[in-house]
């Protein structure tokens, strides 16, 4: 084992037609009651890319990613993972994907080690591989000393990390990560970034949602800006940001900056 994390394996996956996108989202739409959460989103995540999905709170990022990963049934549209339709052939598509959903609970009465093992066994992997990879993942994410602690007693950042480990265990070809850096400490975040970069270098594809622009600009090679349930801009980082920083471009696209005086009474002197 040279790399701490399993790299996306090709041998157990059927040969995909070359040139297909890792994730292709076509016209996904979802309505909750009167509110249209996602209004016809189209996205192409090229194979081998590190794709950032950015948007303000309530933009529809989580809803879009849930529909793309088979967790939430879309009202319209389709999602293809390496050419496999997520809603037509869910089992086949889910084998190709590792998912870190945001805002869901974990089976937190299991210890960290048990949870990652559980995720591996649910995928139908054999025990030896699961044991070996679980150890590697816990080491890489600096959780070895807490491997036997129940996840319910983990801090928020540790919980994120163990959920990430559960998403990586089967060496997927595509990683879908919803807010993977939320409440993760800087050192762990740097470690996770390294893991993800080397994963992309070895041929994997990653899509992350975030609202930390700086992070996305440094880490990703592609980006899509989403607000109000629609895609405002998408492409390589340089295409989207032009001459400005990604943050300035984002604010310009999404709007909503207050340029007035602000809270004039909030002064200490």
């Amino acid at each position: 084992m040279s790399s701490p994390v399993p790299s996306p394996s090709d041998q157990d996956n059927p040969q995909q037609p070359s040139g297909t996108a890792a994730l292709s989202i076509r016209g996904l739409a979802k309505r909750f009651g009167d509110k249209i959460a996602v209004n016809g989103v189209d996205l192409e995540v090229p194979a081998g890319s590190f794709f950032g999905l950015v948007g303000p709170n309530g933009a529809g990022k989580t809803t879009t990613l849930s529909m793309a990963t088979g967790l939430l049934r879309p009202d319209h549209g389709q999602a293809l993972v390496h050419g496999v339709d997520v809603w037509e052939k869910p089992l086949e598509a889910k084998r190709l994907m590792g998912v870190l959903p945001d805002g869901v609970r974990l089976f937190d009465r299991l210890s960290g080690e048990q949870l990652v093992t559980y995720a591996g066994l649910l995928r139908g992997m054999d025990r030896e591989t699961v044991t070996e990879r679980t150890g590697d993942l816990l080491r890489a994410l600096d959780l070895t000393n807490d491997a036997g602690t129940l996840v319910v007693d983990y801090s928020a950042g540790m919980t994120k990390k163990i959920a990430l480990a559960s998403a990586l265990i089967h060496a997927p070809k595509l990683l879908v990560l919803d807010e993977p850096f939320e409440s993760v400490d800087p050192v762990s975040a740097a470690n996770i970034r390294d893991i993800l970069s080397s994963y992309v270098h070895s041929g994997g594809s990653v899509i992350v949602s975030s609202h930390v622009m700086d992070l996305v600009q440094r880490m990703c090679d592609h980006v899509a800006v989403i607000a109000g349930g629609t895609v405002l801009a998408a492409g390589t980082i340089d295409e989207v940001r032009g001459d400005a920083t990604l943050e300035d471009r984002f604010v310009e696209l999404v709007g909503g900056r207050n340029t007035s005086e602000g809270l004039s009474w909030l002064r200490t002197s």
């Binding site: 210890s111 649910l122 995928r123 036997g148 602690t149």
Partner: peptide, 22 residues
């Protein structure tokens, strides 16, 4: 919380390593 190192997989070692066993 007391930190606990791993090594104890509990029931996971006693059931078959299949999805339903897990």
């Amino acid at each position: 919380v007391t930190k606990k190192a791993g090594g104890n997989l509990g029931w996971f070692t006693r059931f078959p390593a299949t999805p339903s066993g897990a």
